[in-house]
Design a protein around this nucleic acid. Structure first.
Length: 351
DNA sequence: TAGCCGTGGCT
DNA sequence: TAGCCAAGGCT
């Protein structure tokens, strides 16, 4: 590892970043408050999620659940419904657990130290550092995707960010730079620079406030950083959904917690790793409706939708035989469903 | 600890 | 198109 060290006492990089941030940051609702509940909400929503995508969800959650108590008192399916479409659904489940931890174990008040925040469900090193620094002025550096990119370029740090040990290198770099009198602003300034200036492709180095300190700008090596070796293997998967209904009622089921879309609702499903013919007799009587493709980070889902319209008596029998849940068709809009099902329902004749 | 977990925008 | 990856955390 190679670091172009600077003075540990009064880091000019921190001053430049904070001055730039104060002038140039985007005005966002969670930046108007120090309420740890709202900072927590925004940080979880923004995990692996762009601001533009998360913003409407943040507003919806603040509107429906203005404080930790209303969030903790809500039922999980309502939270999942509000979360629908945002992805990484375990975040919503963990938030519900976390909110109840805070109410039950912390008397409804967020713990105010990094160490204590780390104990909360769904709160890892990044989120704990963000809340501790922004809400409680604790000088803990955040390490996220932006930080990896910005620091690796400034100091030409060639450690592989796929390696979990590399976290420590960047954490220590952050410690050496952080402005202890304003850690929250410092942390946000690095992330904001990563989001607006020091972007993955085509970084705007001529606009960068720390350009004079940046080794990779000097050497023209911006695109070499950060170093990341691990590639994602994409699995091919084949799902067949069967919509069983009688024109008024419809059968749905809730997914378990061991797979994607945990706790979301769906139709009767045949799930296979290959595109072989279905081996379930019930699909033979159904009408093929549509073939769709849903691209995820780790999987490519090929989804076939089938429809079986039957009478009420048979519907009730199938409900029992297939261990499904029977609801009115119009009620399906109050259940959280995966994206491809949401898309199917949008065009479906009975909705 | 390496694999898993969503969706959408950009190139 | 295909690949990358975005304010990560859990198991």
């Amino acid at each position: 590892m190679k670091i172009n060290t600077i003075s540990p006492h009064t880091p000019p990089i921190a001053q430049l970043l904070i001055n730039w941030y104060n002038l140039s940051h985007r005005k966002l609702p969670w930046r108007e408050t120090n309420d740890p509940y709202k900072i927590w909400l925004s940080e979880i929503i923004l995990q692996q999620t762009r601001v533009a995508q998360g913003l409407p969800y943040y507003n919806a959650f603040v509107g429906s659940y203005p404080d930790i108590h209303s969030f903790a008192n809500a039922d999980l399916d309502s939270i999942l419904k509000l979360w629908q479409g945002l992805g990484y659904y375990s975040r919503a489940r963990n938030m519900h657990i976390c909110a109840n931890m805070i109410v039950d174990q912390y008397n409804g008040r967020f713990p105010c130290s990094y160490k204590e925040l780390l104990k909360l469900k769904g709160v890892g090193k990044y989120t704990a550092a963000a809340i501790a620094s922004i809400c409680f002025n604790e000088p803990i550096p955040v390490v996220d995707g932006n930080v990896y990119r910005v620091f690796s370029r400034i100091f030409e740090i060639s450690d592989d960010i796929s390696n979990s040990k590399t976290f420590n290198t960047f954490y220590e770099t952050g410690e050496s730079l952080i402005d202890s009198s304003n850690p929250g602003t410092f942390n946000q300034s690095v992330m904001e620079l990563g989001a607006l200036v020091c972007t993955p492709k085509n970084p705007k180095c001529n606009e960068c406030t720390v350009a004079e300190y940046c080794a990779s700008r000097k050497n023209g090596t911006q695109t070499n950083f950060p170093v990341k070796t691990k590639k994602v293997k994409v699995k091919e998967r084949h799902l067949k959904y069967l919509i069983i209904h009688d024109g008024i009622n419809i059968l749905i089921q809730q997914r378990d917690t061991k797979n994607i879309w945990k706790n979301l609702f769906e139709f009767y499903l045949e799930d296979s790793m290959s595109d072989i013919e279905t081996n379930q007799k019930i699909f033979l009587e159904a009408i093929f409706k549509r073939k769709t493709r849903h691209i995820l980070t780790h999987q490519r889902l090929n989804i076939d939708f089938f429809e079986l319209k039957t009478n009420f008596k048979r519907l009730v029998k199938l409900e029992k035989d297939l261990k499904m849940r029977r609801i009115k068709i119009e009620e399906i809009h109050s259940f959280a469903v995966p994206k491809p099902i949401e898309a199917f329902l949008k065009d479906w004749d009975y909705c």
